[in-house]
Amino acid sequence: MPKQGKIEVNEERCKGCYLCVSVCPNKCLEKSDKFSKTGYYPASYKGSGCIACMSCAKICPDLAIKVYEL
């Protein structure tokens, strides 16, 4: 059984480059439709599907992602 995870995106640090979205094997990240305080549409976790593979955190240039293993 694959690991189960959870992703937290720090909206104030995210600059909306979506590198995380592009590398997620389970497509569980998406572009938010809410504008952040810093002026971007941040990436956001869809709420399910994370397998705690860390790909998103490894490619994030802004250290805006925290990955938890459930």
Binding site: E12, G16, A57, P61, D62, L63, L70
Partner: peptide, 27 residues
């Protein structure tokens, strides 16, 4: 629930000025 990626202590907890999608932040 266990956090898998702590922010490295060698990098101060500040927002960096790099443009969106720039590789500097990764390195």
């Amino acid at each position: 629930m266990q956090l898998l990626n702590e922010r490295p202590k060698s990098l101060l907890d500040v927002s960096m000025h790099y443009c969106p999608g720039c590789g500097h932040g990764i390195v």
